[in-house]
C-alpha cells in the first residue's frame, strides 16, 4: 500500500484519524476486558475500581457440578453439530463447486437460507415441529437446530476454499487414472483443508455461544452454559458470573488465534463476508 502514500491528507488530519480509529478498535474489546477485570475481583460485588485480586470465582464455578455439566453439554452439542455440519456441508459444497448442474444456484440459496432467518424463528418453529413428533426439548431437537444453524457457515468457508483452488489439479489426477473418490481424498481434500478447518472452528464457536436457538429447546436436564448465564444475569450480577463469562472469552481468544494460524485472520474476514 505504499503507493497510496501520495494520498495522505494533512498531518493533523492523519493523527486524528489514527487516534479515532484506534479508539474505535479498542472499544470493540472494552466490554470483554471489563468482564475479565471484574472476574478477578476479590470482593463479592461488582465494583470499580476492583478491590483485590482473587481467583476464587474461577475455582468456585469450576468446582460446581452444574456449571461443569453445562460446559460439557454445550461442548458435546457443539462438537456433534460441527461434525455433522462438516460432513454435510463439505459434501454439498463439493457438489455445488464441481457439479455443474442446473440447480446449483438454487441449492446454494437453500443451504444458506438459515443465515437470513432469525434464530428465534428457527428455534421456535423447531420447538413447534418437534412437539408434534414428540422430540421437543431434547438433545435431538437441539442438535437438529444447531446443525441447521452452522451448516451455512461451513459451506461458505468451504466454497470459498474451492474457489481459490486450481481445478486443473483435479483434472490432472483424473487424467492420470484416478477416479472421483480417490481424486477427492488425495488431491481435493488437502487443498480445501484450510477451509474445512476454519469452517469447523467457526461452526464450533457459533454453536457453542448460541442462545437464541437454544433457549427454545434446552431443558433443565440438558443445560447449556450460555442459557445458564442468561438466566443468572436476569436475577443478579456478581464476579462469579463474570468468571464464567471470562472463561468463554479466553476460549474465544484461543479460537481466533487458531484461525489466524490456519488461514490468516484477514483471509477469513474476507471469505466470511461473501454470501
Amino acid at each position: 500500500m505504499s503507493s497510496l502514500a501520495f494520498l495522505k491528507p494533512g498531518r493533523i488530519g492523519m493523527l486524528f484519524l489514527h487516534a479515532v480509529s484506534w479508539l474505535a478498535v479498542t472499544y470493540m474489546v472494552v466490554p470483554l476486558a471489563v468482564i475479565v477485570a471484574a472476574s478477578f475481583n476479590a470482593s463479592n460485588r461488582l465494583a470499580f475500581p476492583p478491590q483485590g485480586f482473587s481467583l476464587k470465582w474461577y475455582s468456585q464455578f469450576l468446582s460446581d457440578p452444574t456449571y461443569v455439566q453445562s460446559i460439557l453439554n454445550s461442548t458435546q452439542l457443539a462438537v456433534s453439530a460441527t461434525a455433522i455440519a462438516l460432513v454435510l456441508g463439505t459434501a454439498a459444497a463439493l457438489a455445488i463447486a464441481r457439479g455443474n448442474f442446473r440447480g446449483a444456484g438454487a441449492l446454494t440459496t437453500l443451504m444458506m437460507s438459515p443465515l437470513v432467518l432469525p434464530n428465534i424463528v428457527i428455534g421456535a418453529a423447531l420447538l413447534q415441529f418437534a412437539s408434534m413428533f414428540g422430540f421437543a426439548r431434547s438433545f435431538s431437537s437441539l442438535l437438529a437446530g444447531h446443525v441447521i444453524l452452522v451448516l451455512p457457515y461451513v459451506m461458505r468457508l468451504v466454497l470459498a476454499s474451492f474457489a481459490g483452488f486450481n481445478r486443473s489439479l483435479e483434472e490432472a489426477s483424473q487424467d492420470l487414472g484416478a477416479g472421483p473418490f480417490t481424486t477427492f481424498f488425495r488431491i481435493t481434500l488437502p487443498q480445501i483443508k484450510p477451509g474445512i478447518v476454519s469452517g469447523g472452528l467457526f461452526a464450533f464457536v457459533v454453536s457453542w455461544v448460541n442462545v437464541e436457538l437454544s433457549i427454545f429447546n434446552s431443558s433443565p436436564q440438558f443445560a447449556l452454559l450460555p442459557v445458564k448465564i442468561l438466566n443468572y444475569v436476569e436475577y443478579t450480577v456478581d464476579p462469579l458470573i463474570a468468571a464464567v463469562s471470562a472463561s468463554t472469552i479466553y476460549v474465544a481468544i484461543v479460537i481466533v488465534v487458531l484461525i489466524d494460524a490456519f488461514i490468516g485472520i484477514d483471509k477469513f474476514a474476507n471469505a466470511r463476508a461473501e454470501t
Partner: peptide, 23 residues
C-alpha cells in the same frame, strides 16, 4: 485489528450484554 473485531463475534451475545451491564 481484525482479531479485535472478530473476537466479540466469537463470544456469546449474553457475555457481551453482560459486559455492558458491568459498564
Amino acid at each position: 485489528i481484525y482479531m479485535a473485531v472478530i473476537l466479540p463475534l466469537f463470544t456469546s451475545n449474553i457475555v457481551r450484554a453482560f459486559g455492558f451491564m458491568v459498564l
